[in-house]
Design a protein around this nucleic acid. Structure first.
Lengths: 205, 205
DNA sequence: GTCTATAGAAAGATAGAC
DNA sequence: GTCTATCTTTCTATAGAC
């Protein structure tokens, strides 16, 4: 099916977000991306100069979409209200595992290429995250500490999602209700957030 | 240089932690690990059945070492004291970037192999993290919410380290002093935690 | 705008010698 | 306990046709 170059590029980026999210930079072949788009693998290199260029575009797209979700959810709000709205919005974002995974893939890819002496990906990733961070911070009223806390909960959730652990209410409490109780915990002796895959005690060694 | 198989295996695991931390599972060649150990690449497969087996061992080693650090730092302590001690200990752990990066590599590798239909790595990673989580939780007095909060700050720090952002005092505040002020922030209008690599505003677009 | 064919370079793993 | 040689697969990227 014939398509304009712009439309194709768009499809490629979307497919790339999905594939890179699952496989990471090195674990994803351009073949896999092409297959998802429905074009031949070599054709990708007519649309983008390299695999790395596709990855960088996918990174931008991922953080941009996260912001879109936050923006829509917190439109017209500010301060605590905006913060709560964005926290709630993240609960929905988590439904799309790929969007969460891609965030982590960006981060490790940044470390990866930085240590390899190729700063291009790392710079793109830092730029994208800095922009997201600033937009969120400003929407929440400009306080740096609150943004730090907000992203802290976000990263925790990302890690748990990546590992395949279920998210329980206590994690979300950090996003939505934590400032009303000072601490997320207390004395509640409920079910753990983690006692999942191993069914019973995963005794040491 | 001749060495016992056990000694060699030990060297391989250590080298593997470093290499996998930087390259991730797919981005690290067995050649790179072998080079770091100082043996030939095929010899690795006399010591371990596969690259995956080496990776799983490296994962175990990484979380085990993190616990060793926490354990030593918080020996004899409990509750808030233990929590603070482990938070401080993490500040030192961060000096070793590879140990931090390896944590994230484990997590994305778990997602990666899970979606690929091969649960082995994912299960090993969940087991390792669950054990670390439980040990930390119990040392802190058994409260689930506090453990969640503790790991939240840890994951945030991991992400920032991975991306190459500097850590400022506000991030550490979450580990050490946060319960004394309820919120990490307040009204302090100091330097941001992020305004790093771009020197000035990294304007949108 | 899109494909087939293919070059060229790794990478993981095995075989067999010493 | 350790190496060299090598098989096989996979992967990014290019060339050229339609």
């Amino acid at each position: 099916m014939r398509m304009s170059a712009e439309e194709r590029r768009e499809s490629v980026i979307r497919a790339a977000v999905t594939e890179f999210a699952r496989g990471g930079y090195h674990g994803t072949s351009t073949e896999a991306i092409a297959r998802r788009v429905g074009v031949s693998q070599p054709y990708l290199f007519r649309l983008f100069p390299s695999k790395q260029a596709i990855f960088i575009e996918a990174c931008r797209r991922c953080t941009e979409e996260v912001w879109q979700v936050f923006d829509r959810a917190s439109e017209g709000l500010s301060g605590e209200d905006a913060r709560r709205a964005m926290g709630l919005a993240y609960m929905e974002l988590v439904q799309d595992r790929d969007r969460i995974l891609m965030q982590m893939q960006m981060q490790v890819a940044a470390a990866n290429t930085d240590t390899a002496g190729d700063p291009e990906v790392g710079e793109a990733v830092r730029r994208a995250w800095f922009e997201l961070w600033e937009r969120v911070r400003i929407r929440m009223g400009g306080d740096h500490g609150q943004a730090t806390e907000f992203f802290g909960y976000g990263m925790l959730i990302n890690s748990l999602v990546a590992m395949g652990f279920p998210l329980d209410h206590r994690v979300w409490a950090g996003f939505g209700d934590e400032q009303t109780e000072g601490r997320t915990s207390g004395k509640t002796e409920e079910k753990t957030a983690q006692k999942t895959e191993q069914s019973t005690e995963p005794g040491p060694k």
